[in-house]
């Protein structure tokens, strides 16, 4: 017969936590490698549409973003509830796209300028009028590579 010897008298033994920092550091390194920093704070709400054929944008550092959507609740008093364009961290008009593209282009290296992609992050409820205006403006600045940001439905 096996004997079940009782260790000690009552009370659980202390769990060894010496490897806890290692585990947490591992998690930390995981998140550091797979995530990217948020570039901008969103001041317009954007829920991009679904598209099954969407492809990954391959060079993220060569991408600039144009957000279009309704301003967030706190800023609706200032900017209204109509769809607005957000460039960097502020609400802009159509005419400011030209300067935005020029400055974005300036920040890239000479060789990569042709490969710059403009990602249009447009809310699904926006009307096409404003998007068409943006597209015309981008054509005028010859920023022809665009990507209609969309999610691959799960």
């Amino acid at each position: 017969m096996a004997k079940f010897a009782r260790k000690g008298k009552g009370g659980l033994p202390r769990i060894n936590t010496a490897s806890l920092p290692d585990v947490v550091f591992m998690l930390l390194f995981f998140f550091m490698t797979v995530t990217t920093f948020r570039e901008t704070e969103q001041i317009v709400t954007v829920k991009v549409p679904d598209a099954t054929e969407a492809v990954k944008i391959d060079r993220k550092e060569l991408t600039c973003y144009i957000y279009v959507g309704v301003p967030v609740q706190q800023l609706q008093g200032q900017y209204g509830t109509d769809s607005r364009i957000q460039l960097n961290d502020k609400i802009c008009t159509i005419d400011e796209i030209r300067d935005f593209i020029a400055s974005e282009r300036e920040s890239k290296s000479e060789a990569d300028r042709q490969l710059m992609t403009t990602s249009l992050k447009v809310d699904r409820d926006v009307r096409m009028g404003i998007v068409t205006d943006i597209k015309q403006e981008l054509r005028r600045c010859s920023a022809l590579k665009i990507s209609y940001s969309s999610m691959i439905p799960l």
Binding site: L28, F31, M32, V34, T35, T36, F37, R38, A51, E53, A54, V55, K56, I57, K60, T63, T117, S119, L120, K135, Q136, L138, R139, R140, S142, L144, K145, I146, S147, Y148, S149, S150, M151, I152
Partner: peptide, 21 residues
């Protein structure tokens, strides 16, 4: 800190080329 300041979403989209103006 890293959980708060970073995002995990991968950018996907329909890549198109506009005609020159």
């Amino acid at each position: 800190y890293f959980l708060m300041t970073t995002t995990m979403d991968i950018d996907t989209g329909l890549a198109r080329r506009l005609p020159p103006y």
